[in-house]
């Protein structure tokens, strides 16, 4: 690029949308076999949505910090984590649409489904700051729990009989391990730092702890997809080990395990969400829905 005319590239006739370097995703899984394994397609679609919705909704929440973080370095880090998760969500929702075979792409799935059709866990959707519901300590507590759980899940998912899920897990695992380390460092800093930060970090843990049990509760779809899906019950001891080690390093106390009650036995994986979730979707989806037929 010539510095004396930064504009010349604008009208050089190559306006075919190759500019979004680092934000495209079709190349991310180049060369991966996209064959659908011989399992129930509705189940596999639902499973891809569970994984994709976890990543999408967690990303949406983390992006709320953008321009509101405690320091600029953290604005960059949280945006980066949100971007990684958004990238994973796009691959997973695209796979869900492909397996479903009804012509829905990532955007149709993200923007045109209603609340009852989202299958993310509650931990991803609850408010943990910067607005109501928490602060940076709460956000850090959620990020530690979420990413520790996802690392355990994705490390097993690498052996999935679905080649696309295995590839997403392979790529995503490195990102999630970084997210977990980033959160763990903050948990230790805040736990150890000042009296106030210790109190806030502990309060953050108390806020998210009731949502832990759901992470390890298998849904019927996950159990039916043996060989493709990971049984979340298997992840518990690994995740507990990580959480205990990080909390100990920060001088923090593991909250008592009192799981949030379900609704008639149902929770996020069944499409039964928290009240805050409807507002999240209203905001996320409104523009897309208000201009039907638009191209973006």
């Amino acid at each position: 690029m010539s510095f004396d005319n930064a504009y010349e590239a604008l009208i050089d006739g190559h306006e075919d949308a190759h500019w979004a370097f680092g934000t495209g995703f079709s190349e991310a899984l180049a060369g991966v076999d996209r064959e659908v394994p011989a399992v129930d397609r509705a189940d596999l679609t639902a499973y891809c949505l569970m994984l994709g919705d976890d990543a999408l909704i967690m990303s949406q929440r983390l992006a709320e910090w953008c321009s509101r973080a405690p320091e600029l370095e953290e604005d960059v880090a949280l945006a980066n984590i949100a971007l990684d998760l958004l990238g994973q969500a796009r691959l997973l929702l695209t796979r869900a649409g492909e397996v479903e075979g009804a012509g829905r792409d990532e955007d149709a799935l993200a923007y045109l489904r209603d609340e009852r059709d989202f299958r993310n866990v509650h931990l991803a959707e609850i408010e943990c700051g910067p607005f109501a519901g928490g602060d940076f300590g709460t956000t850090t507590a959620r990020l530690l729990v979420f990413s520790s759980w996802k690392v355990a899940q994705y490390s097993r998912l690498r052996a999935s009989a679905d080649p696309v899920l295995a590839a997403v897990a392979e790529k995503g695992l490195k990102e999630l391990a970084y997210h977990r380390d980033h959160a763990a460092q903050w948990v230790v800093r805040l736990g150890d730092g000042t009296e106030e930060s210790h109190r806030r970090m502990q309060a953050g843990l108390e806020r998210v702890w009731p949502f832990l049990a759901e992470l390890f509760t298998a849904h019927a779809v996950e159990l039916r997809l043996a060989g493709v899906a990971v049984d979340p019950a298997e992840l518990r001891s690994e995740v507990d080990g990580v959480l205990d080690a990080v909390l100990a390093a920060g001088g923090l106390t593991r909250p008592t395990d009192v799981p949030a009650a379900r609704v008639n036995g149902l929770a996020g994986r069944d499409g039964v969400h928290t009240e805050a979730f409807g507002y999240l979707l209203a905001e996320m989806q409104h523009l897309h829905r208000s201009l039907p037929g638009a191209t973006w």
Partner: peptide, 25 residues
């Protein structure tokens, strides 16, 4: 960012705003 009308546009916008934080740094 929270209302971006497609996931691709959301990723582009989030990356751009992140770059601005980097420029500030």
């Amino acid at each position: 960012i929270s209302r971006a009308p497609s996931l691709r546009r959301k990723a582009i916008l989030l990356a751009k705003v992140q770059d601005e934080a980097g420029h500030g740094l």
